[in-house]
Design a protein around this nucleic acid. Structure first.
Lengths: 248, 248
DNA sequence: TCCAATTATTGAACGCGTTCAAAAAGCTCA
DNA sequence: TGAGCTTTTTGAACGCGTTCAATAATTGGA
């Protein structure tokens, strides 16, 4: 482990044959994951099923986690296919949030035993500009852009990222949810949508909107997100309290 | 892995010699953790350092995770020692929150490479009534009870649990924080205190207080927490919207 | 064509957490 | 004392993810 590592810049297949092997390995791995689950689909099992040696699998994939990430991407893409059309039908924000979560559960439930592994991948890697993050973000952007009525202008720009960060918290609940059939996290997803809807509406009030901005910049781990913001309410609430009091 | 397991109901030492062995094993393990870090302090290393066979370590501790949990408990107890006195000096809520987080960092920073392991223990086990949870909860109760001015009565009862749940989210950020010297999560802890302080004051407004209750019952995974509550704002926001509209 | 550099592939090993059957030691009571 | 029980302790093994030096296959230029 040592340092938390991104996918080691690894041997990309340079010949046609190599690409074929890598593709077959990936296909086989995803099949094995689906059929046998995380435990049983060991690197040895995957390699032998693909007809290559164990060590050769590591020639194309630096770790088992790398393959798990590929699975996660595939599942998110599937989720995108399922629900992106539904998000453009003029439903409420609340309804759109539900659509995304429902599709997530539908796609993921078979893979619940990958939860801990998924979560580790999400937490330990910098995926800020990865394919995975792009799919997820475009989903939440559609949720907001397709909602009728549109959320208050003041938060419209930041709401997608807020929803994305929130969805990751929910994912971490789901990942380790040991209640039967993930009852608990399903309930969480069901109940959170109306609260967000309510919250979004309340953001018309300056007090609540300022809270929204505070919470968002706290959740957001992008370095420098505070400086970029035109008015940082977090800073003003802490260091600049006096100047703020004067201003108001 | 299979099922997410509590600490296997394990052989408790029945003789004096047994207790001695188990105690020595634990002491050795915590030393090895402190000196060598998570990776290098393998079960083999711990066992041999304690002068027992590898398999014998498993007679008293069902897994390495069990020992990691003991470490986590020891660290939380240390944190409690450091800051419990400071929480009774009539500081603001914001200041008290800072005190707890500062002590947490002070105690934990040496063990940052245990972060992923700590987090897994916290997420995969039901620790609802464990020693660990009791220590943590009593800290947050002191934060609230010792704050001057006291937070609004309406949220005073629930605020400790809210802070506890929040602190777990922050912990998960810390656990995988790869920024130099955990810069990012330190900033998070620094910035979150004033926001909570502000939020607590705003909870005097009914609109904000209702948001607080919504958020709390969403975060809280205790089964049946919704029914127990006198007024469930989550439910009223979703299923009972019509009856709510009538009431208001 | 043949050689050298590159790419693809392998077998064997390492250390890890964990399991288990069996041996050793300790205890209780005739 | 010693037989039968429980508690403690061990050695050997399993399968896992991962690494690495090695061999085989392929490619490109003289």
């Amino acid at each position: 482990m040592g340092t938390l590592s991104q996918p080691t810049p690894l041997n990309q297949p340079r010949t046609g044959k190599g690409q074929q092997t890598k593709a077959k390995l990936l296909r086989t791995a995803l099949d094995a994951f689906a059929e046998d689950g995380y435990q049983a689909a060991s690197m040895r099992a995957i390699a032998s099923r693909a007809g290559v040696s164990l060590s050769h699998a590591y020639y194309y994939f630096g770790s088992k986690e790398d393959i798990v990430l590929e699975l996660l991407i595939a599942l998110r893409a599937e989720q995108f296919e399922i629900c992106s059309a539904q998000l453009d039908e003029g439903n409420t924000l609340e309804a759109n949030i539900r659509i995304v979560f429902d599709a997530s559960v539908q796609v993921m439930e078979k893979y619940h035993d990958f939860g801990p592994s998924f979560l580790k991948v999400l937490l330990s890697r910098d995926l800020e500009n990865s394919e995975l993050t792009q799919i997820e973000m475009s989903l939440w952007e559609s949720v907001v852009a397709g909602a009728r009525p549109l959320p208050p202008l003041a938060i419209r720009r930041d709401l997608p990222r807020f929803l994305w960060l929130l969805s990751r918290q929910i994912f971490s609940t789901w990942a380790y949810d040991s209640s039967p059939n993930q009852r608990r996290s399903r309930a969480l997803m069901r109940n959170i949508a109306p609260v967000i809807g309510k919250f979004a509406i309340l953001c018309r009030l300056p007090v609540v909107r300022s809270l929204f901005e505070d919470v968002l910049s706290l959740m957001d781990s992008r370095a420098g997100s505070i400086q970029e913001r035109t008015t940082s309410t977090v800073e003003s609430a802490s260091e600049h309290r006096s100047s703020r009091a004067k201003a108001s």
